[in-house]
Write a protein that binds this DNA or RNA. Structure first.
Length: 784
DNA sequence: CATTTTCCGATTTTT
DNA sequence: TCGGAAAATG
């Protein structure tokens, strides 16, 4: 199909039509990366080189997977539903369901999301009487997930000290608890699937032979375990086609390892390295800014974006006195943009941390501009939804103690902490689940627990033949959740969400192509399938019975009941945060959340030392480089208009902080910048810049004297009057404030005098008495 | 058992 | 400062 390949540039075309050999595509921002990925799959299938069943494409988010399937569906007359396109977790879940016995899991295993995992850990520690002050559950959670992502089981973790030994012990106990309950956490999905392939040679060979083409999106975001999993699938006759951009690696903090790109190149002797450098998104000045900034990073694979578009508008820079003034200016500019006819959806306000959204939201509300904030609570994370899901999980797998503990007393049935303690004791004694331990609890507690057990048992029996939507509807009703929220004063929204859950189940059934009457708890036979397929392992001998799935992926390749599928879906895809979705609104989000998106006009706000780059990143290895990549991602979101802003002072956690403008301004090509406020040179800045002192250090510097009230030009909003704060703003300190001096220790400011470089403070130190200090010299730090 | 009070944390986040 | 979660109280 020539149309398929039409309009591809030479590099894109080369990438799309590469032979079946290891390939690494370095795809810059806005270079048509997704298009290459999708077109290659379509091209392979169309050429007869691959079939829908022999392609495996893996992404990081469900959104990306969905987009890929939808666009592929539009290109080819095939059903993409059965194709192995999904997230790492989604695909691992699918494989584990198909081979649950080989993986050592019950057929009805459930998936713990992050919150479930934490509550499981807390329950475990309580049962073992572990001091949660000394061993914070959150730290243990991090420890466990980190170990799993390194591919380490408890026995593989190096014990370095007693503290660490305790963590390893708890890790082991946690894994045992999960195994007993038939639950897996996110990292376990990947590790278990990796081990399944690693320890089962015939199965590994089967999948290596099956998946001729393995395509990976956002390869720079893969962690060690994900890469190891991919390597398990790479065999003698297939190849990995990896697409990524090392300059957009911004997830090191959650285990992403950019080094995987270099490792892949070496380990697979990658012959085909193609750089996509033609950018189809941004105007020239914006791209110049991005290119120049990222050049300051040392360890790059190397890439330079170019565009055929003209220079376009310069990058506008604004210095504000305060964060609220910054917000005022942003909102005025947005108003002007909208007045020129720009749609609100095409305007994004980006910030480094969520706390910054408040001021901007506040200002937008004041002038009545609709906006949408990304992030926040998502549908399947809502408490009422999680409650309903817990009942469904109990119906499917009674051993799921996390679900049991969640709803045993919700709605309230008189089962308090003491009853539960008795139950937990019994469960430990008989080494069984809480549900199974119910008969061993005597007395009043025993009878209320028994009533709950009877309820769940009845629900399980009565839903046996029901379809998924019927099961959900029945569960919401019989659990008493519907009634509870009905009677609750503020329960209407929650009640609606429960109804929405029923709708979600209906939508799920239809999207997955099940018949509406398919029982929720049996493995469905789809039209055309001859038998319920299953893979049985016998002494390492693998009998592959899923032949229909291989020739026709639309025919039930999953071996998953609709209920298991729905519960997995709920855990793996938390859903949208539905706040103000749909309407034409200005988009507010963190820079991280903006990755992959594009807007006509972009505001990057809070460009201050300590905030962006963030002070905490100074502690981490290569932290500054990651911050710079983050800035690179932010800049490359903009198509036509880019605005950068910063504020001299900012209210954060109830305290005013005085910040120096971000070093990133000095790393941008000055000729692309148009300062809307006078640019103050670093040398003229109070106290100067201390580039070698570690950038987390000097964010308490004085406000900028150069930018006094009347020196603003082109300022669309008047400066706020803050005369009563003037002294504080000028010196960065106020009388009565607690400060710390490197030599004299802690003290209280008793007086302030002078301004600018002559500013002095009188400080009463705890040990050294009262002293006058020249603020230009003394390194005073505020103390909370 | 439910409501009030206190306490803690505070960068980024998907699965 | 502020919001969620644990602890304290009626």
């Amino acid at each position: 199909m020539p149309e398929l390949l039409a309009n591809l540039n030479p590099e894109q075309l080369a990438a799309v039509t590469l032979p079946n050999e290891p390939a690494l595509i370095l795809a810059g921002a806005g270079s048509g990366k997704t298009r290459v990925l999708i077109t290659r799959i379509a091209w392979l299938i169309q050429q007869g080189l691959a079939s829908p069943a022999t392609v495996l494409a893996v992404t990081f988010t469900n959104k990306a997977a969905r987009e890929m399937m939808a666009r592929l569906q539009a290109l080819l007359p095939i059903d993409t539903r059965g194709m192995w396109i999904g997230t790492f977790h989604g695909l691992c879940n699918r494989m584990l369901r198909a081979h649950y016995r080989d993986a050592g899991l019950p057929q009805t295993f459930q998936i713990l999301d992050t919150a479930d995992q934490l509550s499981a850990i807390k329950r475990l520690m309580k049962g073992l009487n572990v001091d949660d002050e000394k061993y914070p559950p959150k730290n243990l959670q991090y420890f466990i997930n980190n170990a799993k992502e390194q591919g380490l089981r408890p026995k593989d973790v190096d014990v370095t000290d007693n503290f660490n030994r305790k963590f390893v012990e708890l890790y082991e106990a946690y894994d045992q608890q999960c195994q007993r309950e038939g639950v897996v956490d996110f990292a376990e999905l990947l590790l278990r699937c990796y081990e399944l392939l690693a320890y089962n040679a015939p199965l590994r060979a089967h999948y290596q032979a099956r998946f001729r083409d393995i395509l990976v999106d956002e390869f720079q975001d893969t962690n060690k375990l994900q890469y190891a999993w991919l390597k398990m699938l790479a065999g003698p006759a297939n190849a990995i086609f990896a697409v990524g951009d090392d300059d957009q690696s911004i997830y090191a903090f959650r285990g992403a390892n950019v080094g995987n790109m270099r490792d892949f190149e070496e380990e697979f002797r990658v012959k085909h390295l193609i750089k996509l450098e033609q950018n189809y998104r941004s105007h020239g000045y914006i791209l110049d800014a991005a290119n120049r900034l990222i050049e300051h990073n040392a360890h790059r694979l190397g890439k330079n974006l170019r565009t055929d578009a003209g220079h376009g508008e310069p990058v506008r820079v604004y210095e504000a006195a305060t964060d609220s003034q910054e917000a005022g200016w942003i909102v005025e500019e947005i108003r002007a943009l909208i007045n020129t006819g720009l749609s609100r959806n095409e305007v994004a306000v980006l910030y480094r941390s969520n706390a910054q959204s408040r001021t901007i939201e506040h200002t937008l509300v004041n002038v009545g501009i609709p906006y949408r904030v990304y992030g926040g609570l998502r549908f399947f994370e809502r408490q009422e939804v999680k409650h309903a899901l817990a009942y469904l999980r109990l119906i499917d797998n009674p051993n799921d103690d996390t679900a049991f503990a969640r709803v045993v007393n919700f709605p309230a049935r008189g089962i308090g902490a003491r009853s539960l303690e008795q139950l937990a004791d019994a469960a430990r004694l008989y080494n069984c689940s809480m549900a199974a331990a119910v008969p061993y609890v005597a007395g009043k507690a025993g009878s209320s627990l028994a009533a709950f057990a009877t309820l769940v048992g009845r629900m399980r029996a009565e839903t046996q033949q029901m379809s998924l939507p019927e099961t959900v509807e029945y569960t919401v009703r019989m659990s008493g959740l519907a009634e509870f929220y009905q009677n609750e004063r503020e329960g209407q929204d929650r009640l609606e969400n429960l109804q929405e859950l029923v709708n979600a189940a209906t939508a799920f059934v239809s999207e997955e192509g099940y018949g509406l009457d398919t029982p929720a708890r049996s493995i469905p036979l789809r039209p055309g399938a001859t038998a319920a397929p299953e893979i049985v392992s016998d002494d390492g001998e693998i009998e592959v019975l899923d032949a229909p799935a291989i020739t026709d992926p639309a025919q039930n390749p999953d071996l998953m009941t609709p209920l298991a599928g729905f519960l997995s879906h709920a855990s793996l895809e938390a859903g949208d945060n539905q706040a103000q979705a749909g309407q034409d609104a200005v988009q507010l989000m963190t820079v991280h959340a903006a990755k992959g998106l594009e807007f006509t006009a972009v505001f990057i706000t809070g460009l201050e030392e300590g905030l962006f780059p963030h002070e905490n990143s100074a502690m981490e290895a290569d932290g500054l480089e990651e911050e710079r990549r983050l800035m690179y991602v932010a800049i490359t979101r903009a198509k036509e208009r880019l605005y950068l802003s910063f504020a001299q002072s900012r209210l954060l956690h109830g305290q005013t902080r005085y910040n120096v403008r971000s070093r990133f301004f000095d790393e941008l090509p000055q000729e692309t910048l148009k300062w809307l406020t006078p640019k103050v040179e670093a040398g003229a800045r109070w106290g100067g810049r201390s580039d070698n002192a570690g950038y987390g250090r000097d964010w308490f510097s004085r406000p900028d004297r150069g930018a006094s009230r009347d020196s603003y030009v082109e300022s669309s909003a008047p400066l706020p009057a803050f005369a009563n704060e003037q002294r504080a703003a000028e010196t960065g300190f106020r009388v009565g404030q607690q400060v710390f001096h490197t030599k004299f220790g802690e003290g209280t400011i008793t007086a302030l005098e002078g301004s600018g470089t002559d500013a002095k403070a009188q400080v009463r130190f705890k040990r050294h008495g009262e002293k006058w200090l020249a603020l230009a010299v003394a390194k005073l730090q505020p103390v909370e």
